[in-house]
Design a protein around this nucleic acid. Structure first.
Length: 279
DNA sequence: ATGTCGCTTTGAAAGCGA
């Protein structure tokens, strides 16, 4: 099973590129972020013609997440319990919930979330507090799920908008006082690892960025950030057999500013200690 | 250079978010 995550920065601007890559890379399931369209605006036909069914969660021109799968999509869940909102209060006094979290079950019971973590904008900005609150509520929900089903094959995948390590940005000095590298954000990221989730890509791809800003020749200079991650439950992590960061997808005409992160999984024979040894 | 994108409202240019 080949599973990927990709912040596409507008699906309508990149439909052919995304579908072409899905087929070229032989991807079974893609988690999308920043589709930047409503559900009715999504280019369903192009994906269906390529053999993928699609589920999307898009409310307006901002954010938006989705999945494309050729091995099934079941138990679709938007948001998560306790998810905070942001923006102008609604008539009932609550804040609007943004389209940033979508979970599905694929294949034979693999539970995947497509996540677009709030950017944060600036330290001390209301959006930064929103980001931390959003992550705290997601962590709580994930903890409950793992406690209820410790053996579950589960992965949280997406654009985390956090660089967990200094080496995940090209020059940490540039990020003094910036979001994405602040200690509260990194602590939030580690709080998921404290649940037993593991970054399943870094051990296999120790170096490399997943995002390069369009501005200031960031890609030609390789001045990027590693902010897109797949965090897997112990059972999920045990089934991972390969991973790659698809750097070539930042090249050519009209690329997204993020590239796909791809994980290969052998869900039929997880490498856990209970597996009978056969010689 | 706050140096690029993509979307929106608005009626070709500006605002917003990243």
């Amino acid at each position: 099973m080949r599973i990927a995550t990709w912040n596409v920065n507008s699906i309508r601007a990149r439909t052919a590129r995304v579908v072409d890559w899905l087929q070229r890379a032989d991807v079974d399931v893609l988690a999308l972020q920043e589709i930047k369209c409503r559900d009715d605006q999504f280019p369903h036909e192009a994906f269906e013609q390529a053999g993928y069914e699609v589920v999307t969660y898009g409310l307006n021109q901002w954010n938006g997440v989705g999945f494309a799968s050729r091995i099934g999509l079941a138990d679709v869940t938007r948001d998560f319990p306790g998810i905070p909102g942001f923006g102008k209060p609604l008539p009932d006094g609550t804040l609007p919930i943004e389209a940033r979290a979508l979970a599905v079950t694929v294949g034979d019971g693999v539970r995947l979330s497509s996540l677009y973590v709030p950017n944060g904008r600036e330290l001390g900005h209301p959006h930064y507090d929103y980001k931390l609150e959003w992550l705290a509520r997601l962590q709580e929900d994930t903890r409950r799920r793992l406690e209820a089903e410790p053996q579950t094959l589960l992965a949280l995948m997406g654009d985390w908008n956090i660089a967990p390590l200094d080496e995940d940005v090209w020059d940490i000095r540039v990020f003094d006082g910036a979001t994405h590298v602040s200690e509260p954000e990194r602590e939030a990221f580690r709080s998921f690892e404290a649940l037993g989730l593991r970054d399943v890509v870094r051990p296999l791809v120790p170096k490399g960025y997943t995002y390069w800003d369009y501005k200031q020749l960031r890609f030609p200079r390789n001045e990027g950030m590693r902010i897109d991650f797949v965090l897997g439950s112990p059972a999920f992590a045990g089934a991972v057999t390969g991973a790659s960061i698809e750097r070539n997808e930042r090249k050519g005409d009209a690329p997204s500013d993020h590239v796909p992160v791809l994980v290969e999984l052998d869900a039929d024979s997880p490498l856990d200690d209970d597996r009978p040894m056969i010689f």
